[in-house]
Design a protein around this nucleic acid. Structure first.
Length: 688
DNA sequence: GCACGATCAACGTC
DNA sequence: CGACGTTGATCGTG
């Protein structure tokens, strides 16, 4: 290991005056540099000679030739990949995401397209899973599940049989959240080797098995075409996740099919495929050349044979003849975590050609898949992002390649492709907390004695003991569960800077961009996919002293860039359900989390990317107090983690909460609150 | 109904 | 980092 490799190092102390370096020049000052904006939609203000390399030294693009915006031969307009809503069921519309701002134009055509498909779908599948389905269902009663009454993100109560058969957006998200909470807990137990009866390898399969057997699943009714509640652009990190939401049933096989019975005949028809470029599948935009299954290709001690026209291969052949739609999931190597794979649902395709080729002297089947028109971009957007990163093309509307001026270990782009505004108001980029004077937390500060890296399950590590014996993160740095407080190792711990218990100190993990929204000012989103539980950033800024809060009260109230732990937040459930594992009953209730100590942070004058995150009543990010000591005192930090998997270019949002004074005074101060534009179905209408 | 086998997995380890 | 071995789940088939 490279000790002290910059990547995972502890953030600079406040005494090291990096802030001078980090002083982002007033972004407003960019305004005179550019020609005054016209109303015309996005034009490029990237550098004249293409994009910046990744290690690029930040400067302002003064040399942009006026009046000659570069027109990029770009493919898709970058829109949130989640923006698409399927219309299979009325519940599915925007149940979760309030992050589909600038892509409304997609919805209309897509809706029409799928409505047509729905009506036109001629085939009825049959499978064993349908046998248990009662024929007459009381849809009225069973469609209203407990969660709908409460706040949308709560996942209490079981999933009814009807909901298991056919999903919707909210259900799909709920199933995925419960699955992943379980998987993270199993990973944690495996890391600590604390499970007595056998080791849990493959926590994903174990969690998948539990989910499936306990009925935490949906879309069991298998069908041709779109799956209710799964939207184009949705991402997954395990094959088994495709199973629990009913997108693709086989846990390993790449071809899913069902048997369609006509009057006398029956034949297999393909419903979905999973492609992985490593298997020689040719992937290019809306075309996919897919290889058949079987033949023992790529297997070591097996002789390659001709592929046979049976099972999946036969199903694909029949689907080619029938011309039915097939769901396509693209497996992509994860750039952030190269050992794992990301699966992107890329919508519906049809097979246009089928032929055989010779490989190693044997026949293999090939199928040419063509994407149905009118669907929002998904995989194609990934390819665009890849080109931005590699420097082959420039992000449309790029204003700055790195607005942090190098303060973060990964650049943060500043982008506006909706209007002429050249940047947010002036602020100083500072990646952590700044205390005006020393703050006391009652906890004495002491570190652990671990030498290299703290080991999960080590009873001697005091940092782990402070976390009630559980290592808070899995081995790949994903947060296992919410807690009132998470204790990370600090500067005086002798363990290495890349100790796994320093997740929130190790800087940004994903390439983020600050972008102009259509109606909510500036927002934050990511070029990289983010898996649930991933640390995104902390809330940086100046810590406001509560004592002088009275005099500074007015100031804070008018400060739009303030984070305040004492606000009222919607409770939500994110952790695993202890009942699913045969453990001692846990009294860990996420409902009543107490804030360990009040913390108010203002990012008005200085702050990091977190100050750009907008509010949503159905957020995809939550905050979590984290403690680590510093200069022999314990300091509280606010770390943001992903609630669920977040596809690239989806806006990151969290719950701003409601100020207590507002709450107490009731309606009289409603006008002090801000009208909420999150657009989610359970939007409260206002916040602040 | 039950067991079995084929299958474009995900890890850890070497 | 890539090949290999281990563990492993699902659904259709027999």
């Amino acid at each position: 290991m490279e000790a002290g490799s910059g990547y995972n190092s502890v953030p600079p102390s406040t005494s090291f005056d990096k802030s001078r370096v980090l002083d982002v020049k007033p972004l407003r000052s960019l305004k005179p540099v550019f020609p005054s904006a016209s109303e015309t939609p996005p034009f490029v203000c990237g550098p004249p000679n293409g994009p910046f390399p990744s290690g690029f030294t930040p400067f302002y693009p003064f040399s942009v030739p006026k009046g000659s915006p570069m027109q990029m031969p770009m493919g898709p307009i970058p829109t949130p990949l989640r923006a698409f809503r399927s219309t299979q069921s009325p519940e599915s519309s925007r149940a979760f995401d309030g992050d589909d701002g600038p892509s409304m134009e997609m919805d209309g055509s897509a809706d029409g397209y799928f409505d047509g498909q729905k009506r036109g779908a001629p085939l009825r599948g049959s499978s064993s899973s349908q046998r248990k389905t009662p024929k007459n269902r009381d849809t009225k009663s069973s469609l209203s599940y407990a969660a709908r009454k409460g706040s949308g993100t709560v996942f209490v109560g079981d999933i009814s049989q009807v909901d298991r058969d056919d999903g919707n957006r909210e259900l799909v998200n709920r199933v995925l959240m419960r699955f992943d909470a379980l998987r993270r807990r199993l990973s944690q137990m495996e890391d600590a080797k604390e499970l007595s009866n056998g080791i849990i390898k493959r926590a994903d399969l174990k969690a998948g098995n539990l989910s499936m057997s306990k009925g935490i699943r949906t879309n069991m009714r298998r069908k041709i075409g779109a799956v209710s509640g799964v939207e184009i652009g949705d991402i997954f990190f395990f094959r088994i996740e495709l199973c629990v939401v009913g997108l693709h049933a086989p846990s390993m096989s790449g071809i899913d099919y069902l048997i369609v019975r006509d009057a006398l005949d029956q034949e297999p028809v393909a419903v979905s495929i999973v492609s992985s470029a490593e298997y020689g599948d040719v992937e290019d935009g809306d075309i996919l050349i897919y290889s058949g299954q079987g033949g023992n290709f790529g297997k070591k001690d097996k002789q390659a044979t001709d592929q046979k026209l049976e099972r999946g291969n036969l199903a694909l052949e029949r689907s080619f003849r029938r011309g039915n739609e097939i769901r396509v999931v693209r497996g992509i190597k994860d750039a952030v975590n190269p050992s794992s794979k990301v699966y992107v649902y890329d919508g519906l395709y049809k097979i246009q050609e089928s032929w055989t080729e010779r490989k190693s002297g044997c026949n293999i089947f090939k199928y040419k898949f063509v994407r149905m028109p009118g669907q929002p971009v998904a995989f194609a957007a990934w390819k665009s992002i890849q080109k931005w990163k590699e420097g082959f093309s420039s992000r449309v509307g790029l204003i700055l390649p790195d607005l942090t001026s190098g303060a973060e270990n990964i650049p943060v782009s500043l982008v506006n492709d909706v209007d002429g505004e050249k940047g947010p108001a002036h602020f100083i980029y500072f990646p952590s907390l700044k205390y005006s004077k020393s703050f006391d937390l009652t906890q004495p500060s002491f570190g652990c004695n671990c030498r290299n890296a703290c080991q999960p399950g080590d009873p001697d590590c005091s940092c782990i003991r402070k976390n009630e014996g559980d290592f808070p993160y899995t081995s790949n740095g994903v947060l296992v569960g919410r807690k009132p407080l998470i204790h990370e190792c600090g500067p005086t711990c002798p363990c290495f800077p890349n100790c796994k218990n320093r997740v929130s100190q190790s800087g940004l993990k994903a390439h983020l961009e600050v972008f102009k929204t259509t109606d909510r000012g500036w927002g934050l989103r990511s070029w990289d996919p983010i898996r649930a539980g991933t640390f995104i950033c902390e809330y940086a800024g100046e810590v406001i002293d509560k004592v002088k809060g009275k005099q500074g009260g007015e100031e804070v109230e008018n400060d739009e860039y303030v984070f305040d732990t004492t606000r009222v937040y919607n409770s939500f459930k994110w952790n695993y359900e202890p009942g699913l594992l045969e453990e001692e009953s846990s009294n860990d209730s996420e409902e009543e989390y107490k804030i360990p100590s009040p913390l108010v942070i203002s990012a008005k004058n200085m702050g990091n990317v977190a100050r750009f995150m907008n509010h949503s009543c159905s957020p995809n990010v939550f905050w979590q107090p984290v403690l680590y000591e510093h200069n022999n005192q314990s300091f509280l930090h606010i770390a943001f983690f992903a609630i669920r998997h977040i596809p690239p270019m989806t806006e990151l949002t969290y719950d701003y909460g409601i100020a207590r004074s507002n709450e107490a005074e009731g309606n009289s101060t409603l006008n002090r609150k801000k009208k909420c534009l999150c657009g989610s179905s359970n939007c409260h209408g206002y916040f602040g």
